[in-house]
Design a protein around this nucleic acid. Structure first.
Lengths: 245, 245
DNA sequence: GCAAGGGGAATTGTATGCATACCTTCCCTG
DNA sequence: CAGGGAAGGTATGCATACAATTCCCCTTGC
């Protein structure tokens, strides 16, 4: 078979295909997925379909149905808000533990390098930002933060919680870039990044935790703004397509 | 077929069997699980074995291996400590959100009933406790607490985080009951339960969060005590058998 | 001595047919 | 007309055969 999609196995291709359909809103929340129908549609057998659905359930995009089978999980805006709140709590915990336990010099140096990378995304004039680079560096910064306390458990749970696209630290960045207000909010976000690392370096656990939580609330404000006015942006924020309208 | 085990399908039986072996320490962390070997051992085919392993990966007991297959996750004592810390953080968040958003009267009445049930487990003399009933009521109390803010997201993530047996709110209760110190610590725990509900009712979010975190640290102290002295108790705490010695 | 390549065994990936359980619908009966 | 039971259709559960991949080790060449 000519590999139309980049993955090696049929199961992976099916997983990617289904994930795209779910995230794109083509398979709305609550939709039950039937093995035979999907197998015919993708021209493969039921076995890799089951494997793909199983992995998507681990990802949190599908849920198992009583009596067998899977259904697309449904998310409303409260779920999104709470998922972001939860990310703030978990990143806050990572920050607090890093401060309390003490991050070694090399790790702090790495965080400062990531801060500098983020600084480099801002142009001379206010509101001038390289969004793509910012989003990329922002993801790196948050991933490094999760690893800072040196706890597999914390790092793993943060990875899990930020797996759903609307809960990702960069969810509201690149595609919401049209609005001047959003662009300017990046300056605030970067100030929070800087203060966060400063607090961790100074072993100020409570301060670090509080900053990380407030940082996540920026995303909550952006979401609220989209809801209040620019609902047209819903389709442009990655992963917001699967949220019930 | 005579159903020797309580579950209906072969996959469920395999899942239960493997879970018991992992929790009991018979399959140590890092052990790779091979489909064919397990299929022969359980006298079923590979298909339900795969299904069972996939579900155990969702549970957090197995992890997928690069190139296919599964391996038993390994936990050291740091992982256990961090998992308990994380439970405190998440339950603290549930308590804070319940306080901030306001729990309705019916829900608070239910929590007070659960408090009374826990009170009923204590006898007249100090150190006299019905452990089995306490553990059962304690689980109910913590489950109700997770549901108190009315957030599916929070409730789901708390359920996930307390799924690993050593992270459960009742992990260190029933089987550690021999020690007088542990028995007496239940009085403190119940005082914390009471103060927690009081704080939520009074909309004192920060206080409620702080109490819930400190409450979880009781389990951390018990674990530390087991490590420092009574390592013989390791086998008696449910789920501590899978922790690397 | 080391690295690169090849071969073979072990393990997972996939297809398919049959078994089974569940749900719906329709008919029969009270 | 209502309730219950039976039958059929539909979906998943399971077994098995075969394909493909991967990994390890051994060999060979530099």
């Amino acid at each position: 078979m000519t590999k139309a999609t980049p993955a090696g196995t049929h199961a992976m291709r099916a997983q990617i295909h289904l994930r795209e359909q779910i995230l794109g809103g083509e398979l709305p929340g609550g939709t039950r997925l039937f093995e035979v129908a999907l197998a015919e549609q993708l021209a493969i057998s039921r076995t890799p379909i089951r494997e793909a659905m199983s992995r998507l359930a681990e990802e949190g995009l599908l849920e198992r149905v009583r009596g067998g089978g899977f259904r697309v999980r449904s998310f409303d805006f409260d779920d999104v808000m709470d998922a972001i709140e939860l990310r703030g709590v978990l990143e806050g915990t990572a920050a607090r533990l890093a401060a309390e336990r003490g991050a070694d010099a090399a790790a702090l140096a790495r965080m400062n390098r990531l801060l500098a990378d983020l600084d480099g995304c801002f142009g001379a004039a206010p509101g001038q930002v390289d969004f793509e680079a910012y989003a990329e560096n922002n993801s790196r910064f948050h991933a490094a933060l999760a690893a800072l306390p040196g706890s597999r458990t914390i790092e793993r749970e943060i990875a899990r919680a930020t797996q759903l696209p609307f809960a990702s630290p960069s969810a509201f960045l690149p595609d919401s870039a049209q609005l001047a207000a959003f662009r300017l909010s990046l300056n605030l976000a970067q100030e929070q990044h800087r203060a966060l690392i400063e607090a961790i370096a100074a072993r100020q656990g409570a301060r670090a935790e509080s900053i990380a939580r407030e940082h996540a609330r920026t995303a909550q404000r952006n979401l609220h703004h989209i809801l209040a006015g620019d609902r047209a942006l819903i389709g442009q924020v990655p992963g917001l397509g699967l949220v019930a309208q």
